[in-house]
Design a protein around this nucleic acid. Structure first.
Length: 593
RNA sequence: CGGGGCGUGGCGCAGUUUGGUAGCGCGGGUGCUUUGGGAGCACUAGGUCGCAGGUUCGAAUCCUGUCGCCCCGACCA
């Protein structure tokens, strides 16, 4: 390909709306163009990158016997209602774009495809003899993100590979899960990325076990915790650990103390000479459930600890056996409950506070206590009366222990659960892959059944496996760039080498450059020739910016048949006779393909 | 959704406080010179100042409304 024909427009200035390096470089290099918030056009260079990633993914999945398909993007509301996700995905902060057709039927633009594929599998796969089956597709997904940002990192329209597996038993699902784990490891390695796989929350998709593949980078939106012995890594949303030990409070007779103006843990500890670990902090939430009812929640946690809302949401769902659509902190503005003594609430806050609440509210609190607070034998807490706390109290005297759960946020510095000598350290990560053992959630709700060996019908065991293709491309830049621009890993670079003719008016340079270009084309090398009537410096800058791994310069020494070979990453340069340069380049490229 | 900021040639910005009919850099075109790390000079094209109302003799500038974009937040009582 000739650069003059490439529709290449690079920018010298940093685009005003790009925050992180990878986003800036994608825009400056002319890889993407924003069309509206969170929606981008992939320009020709970008499309080549995406196609390279796509082929690696296809090769690795095909090698594991997966079947490629293409599923519809418009989904009827009915199947999402059947799986119980229509409300959660469209109401509140739901992320599904949805619309009505001319008949008034509701449709959603697919943010993910469990419903569609499960329905199809249920109709197609009748017998255990047809199982297992793994189906995948690579196509555009739509999610109306609350806040799109960072270019392709969190966009509203993006390319994703999603795979779904169907099994006749759980063991088979587990072995496929391990196989996919292996395929993913291969894929990311081949793409030239450093990734770490972490335990993850299954989120809105649901299901049992799941792992995320993270590209480690400071710009990552996720916080991941890794144990110092490297035997444990988890997303903070999921991470478990042992909290630091608190200072125990002496067991004395419980008493009420006046604490005017001490409505925060810090102020209380300051004035009363307490340590935050000696205080039980109480936070109130209001959960909106899938049946549109509201459940007030009261949680107790040790004063120095932070609450993990994801864990809390999961606990609520488990205890009530209903999906949580929205969870927010309860405030005094909520209708009917303006009597709550915020800042002074204790674990035994009476349910009578809810009497005057809105009709859709459950009239009693669902109460949880985190392990960190449950193990305290003597503590301070709010007295449920403005300007008063209790001190030296215990669980018995505040109405007994609520349900004990793990709802604290694990943080760096905590002790690992599996090894008392290992600590957790934190890193930021960009999630580019996620594998789930879904179990039978969708096959049950969508009534997708097969006939087993005994002739009985049962729902499939399912797994699902995603890779953010477009996000992966940007994450690769976040991990591979320097002050001059992108440094594409060879396997996913839009072109492997660019032949730069330093001066187009020099016939020797031109002849040599064109010759080697033709030559490399015959060798099936992805080669670009910069034939623009530009000064050499411009061409070098552009080649560096768009990150082509190898540069061949037909310049001053062309008359002697010598050409310069430069590696984008190391900047090492060699002046070699044309034949030798060609040989070395071909061998280097075949090594890292 | 809450808070903050910004909309001025393709891109990055100034001009808005104090109203007088739009400017700079990059990029584009032509010519000459230059030719190994984003060249120089000259000429040139390109903008209903997001949009709609209003105030005014006169609006990029003031007022009202509206649309769009970006950032922070939407747990720690």
């Amino acid at each position: 390909m000739q650069v003059s024909r490439l529709m290449l427009v690079t920018l010298r200035d940093i685009p005003a709306d790009a925050e992180i390096t990878s986003h800036q470089l994608l825009v400056r290099g002319g890889f993407i163009k924003r069309v509206t918030s969170g929606i981008y056009a992939y320009m020709p260079l970008m499309w080549r990158v995406l196609k390279k990633i796509t082929s690696i993914v296809q090769e690795e999945l095909d090698a594991k016997g997966c079947l490629e398909t293409l599923l519809p993007q418009l989904h009827p509301a009915e199947i999402w209602e059947q799986s119980g996700r229509w409300n959660g995905y469209t109401a509140g902060e739901g992320i599904m774009f949805h619309l009505k057709d001319r008949q008034g039927r509701e449709l959603g633009l697919g943010p993910t495809h469990e419903e569609v594929i499960t329905k199809i599998a249920g109709e197609t796969l009748q017998s255990y003899k047809q199982l297992p089956v793994t189906i995948y597709q690579i196509q555009t997904k739509f999610r109306d993100e609350i806040r799109p940002r960072f270019g392709l990192m969190r966009s509203r329209e993006f390319i994703m590979k999603d795979a779904y597996s169907f099994h006749s038993n759980e063991e088979d699902l587990k072995s496929k899960y391990l196989e996919m784990n292996e395929a993913y490891t291969n894929i990311f390695k081949r793409c030239g990325l450093t990734t770490v796989s972490v335990d993850a929350d299954s989120g809105a998709i649901g299901g049992a076990e799941s792992k995320e593949f993270m590209v480690t980078a400071d710009a990552g939106e996720d916080l991941i915790l890794i144990s110092t012995d490297n035997n444990y890594a988890a997303n903070q949303e999921k991470a478990v650990s042992i909290a630091c030990k608190g200072k125990s409070l002496p067991k004395e007779t419980s008493k009420m103390i006046e604490t005017q103006g001490q409505s925060t843990i810090n102020k209380l500890c300051d004035k009363q000479d307490l340590d935050p670990t000696q205080v039980v902090k109480v936070i109130l939430f209001l959960a909106l459930l899938e049946d549109n009812s509201y459940q007030p929640i009261l949680i107790s946690i040790r004063g120095d600890q932070e609450l993990n809302e994801v864990k809390l949401t999961n606990e609520i769902a488990i205890h009530l056996k209903k999906n949580v659509i929205d969870l927010k902190t309860l405030s005094n503005e909520e209708s009917g409950v303006n009597q709550l003594p915020f800042g002074y609430i204790g674990p035994d806050l009476n349910d009578s506070f809810l009497e005057k609440s809105n009709n859709h509210w459950n009239k009693s609190f669902l109460r949880f206590v985190d392990h960190t607070a449950a193990t305290l034998e003597s503590f301070a807490c709010g007295a449920n009366k403005i300007n008063y706390h209790k001190i030296y109290t215990n669980w018995q005297s505040v109405g007994g222990l609520p349900k004990i759960v793990d709802i604290r946020k694990a943080v760096a510095g905590d002790t690992a659960q599996h090894n008392k000598n290992a600590k957790l350290v934190e890193k930021r990560g960009i999630e580019i892959g996620h594998i789930f053992q879904l179990g039978r959630k969708y096959s049950k709700s969508l009534n997708a059944l097969f006939t087993n060996e005994s002739g009985l019908q049962e729902p499939f065991w399912m797994g699902c496996y995603g890779i953010g293709i477009s996000r992966l491309a940007q994450a690769a830049i976040e991990q591979n760039h320097d002050k001059d621009g992108i440094i594409w890993p060879l396997a996913i670079a839009p072109f492997e080498v660019v032949v730069v003719i330093a001066n187009m008016k020099d016939q020797n340079q031109r002849a040599l450059g064109e010759e080697i270009y033709e030559d490399l084309l015959k060798e099936k090398i992805d080669v670009l020739i910069d034939d623009r009537e530009e000064r050499a410096g411009v061409k070098f800058k552009d080649a560096d910016l768009i990150g082509i791994p190898w540069k061949l310069i037909a310049g001053r020494d062309s008359a002697e048949g010598k050409i310069e070979l430069i590696n984008r990453q190391t900047k090492n340069s060699k002046l070699l006779p044309y034949k030798e340069a060609r040989k070395e380049l071909i061998s280097e490229i075949s090594k890292s393909r």
